[in-house]
Design a protein around this nucleic acid. Sequence first.
DNA 1: CAAGATTTTTAGAAATGTCTAAAAAATTAT
DNA 2: ATAATTTTTTAGACATTTCTAAAAATCTTG
Lengths: 217, 217
Amino acid sequence: MTLSEEDYIKAIYHLSKDDKGNVSTNAIAAQMDSKASSVTDMMKKLAEKDVVHYKKYQGARLTDKGKSYAAKIIRKHRLWEFFLVEKLNFSWDEVHEIAEELEHIKSEKLIEKLDAFLDFPRTDPHGDPIPDKHGNITKVEKILLSSAKNNEKGIVIGVKDSSSDFLRYLDKLGISLGKEITILHKEPFDNSVMINLDGEKTSISALTANNIYLKIN
Amino acid sequence: MTLSEEDYIKAIYHLSKDDKGNVSTNAIAAQMDSKASSVTDMMKKLAEKDVVHYKKYQGARLTDKGKSYAAKIIRKHRLWEFFLVEKLNFSWDEVHEIAEELEHIKSEKLIEKLDAFLDFPRTDPHGDPIPDKHGNITKVEKILLSSAKNNEKGIVIGVKDSSSDFLRYLDKLGISLGKEITILHKEPFDNSVMINLDGEKTSISALTANNIYLKIN
DNA sequence: CAAGATTTTTAGAAATGTCTAAAAAATTAT
DNA sequence: ATAATTTTTTAGACATTTCTAAAAATCTTG
Ligand SMILES: [Mn+2]
Ligand SMILES: [Mn+2]
Ligand SMILES: [Mn+2]
Ligand SMILES: [Mn+2]
């Protein structure tokens, strides 16, 4: 599989995460920052290789083979991100881009040895689960901060948006994985959320609250 | 610079190591396992980018820019090899192929952090020097085992051939970097060399002796 | 349901990197 | 110094990946 094919497979995987149906040509083009016509070409090729189901005008979805392949790329991506943060002291907003390249390195043995060296981490620096070597992903119960109720208390276990900009903003707010947050009040006017973080009252915008995952209890 | 361009730059660098002159089109093709016509095409492109001096029918050599670029790729290659052996417990015959991919990962910051994580190693697992971040390479005095004289004693500090086959053969002989070898006798008939290794007499073929570097004294 | 709008595909082209076969230049040998 | 040989370049082709523009299909809406 070429680098380009792998990136398309990953894009379809991420677009399929939420809803089960087919992913539209335009949605893939947007995700890949390419054009619909390029997607059509690629879908024909990936269908030929049996990694996607594709019918004209009906979008695409991954086959079992495609899903397994996607999980392997994501496993590599997240293990490398973990390595960059834990061993090389990168911050969580710097690693995505580099992992985007490292995820395409081909050796199976490399990734198993890396996994062992890192002591078999379960989640990446953004709280996302690392698939095991068979492609199985452990789902963790989590809710968006924006949907937590008053007086609920939770631990930050992930982010929905893992762009550099958002992650650096969280750094500035003092929010990182593992922090305890208590919901004090939800403001109906602008859907902002007043929280208790490290014993201090802080107001979080609706957009921010909608991109932080909490584990409740 | 593309992956392909980087591999050509590296090939010219390695071919230029010994003699200073221009490298022939055919020599590059042989090194790259490609065809002379492909090399001609690529040399035109690399000359356009000012990394090689190239004149029709006269071969190519790296410009200063090209040399500096080559040193950077080789730095990455050798740091990754060191990482694979020292941190991930690969054996020295397994790492070249993987480093061949890793050397193309683009982040400058990554390689500086990797260097620090590895505690600034000076040589790779095959005894080859790791260029510093400015591309400077420290030359180490060394001779081929085949050119050592009777009764000379030396430390194995490198190999000329670092193919898997040769390295695995050295493993079998019990020869690794750091081992002390004493030359007992050179057999004129087949140029084989009788050595003392770990207190035992061993005979080394001319070919083998011609691919092991020693530091004398 | 019939425009009208949107999405998707096709057609055609460009850039990259590679190859084979043939031509041209350089080198070696007679 | 010619001829034979080897090296190198050119010409033309193919596979990938991508794009723009235009056509076709599907969806939306009055
Ligand atoms: Mn990628
Ligand atoms: Mn991540
Ligand atoms: Mn390479
Ligand atoms: Mn090496």
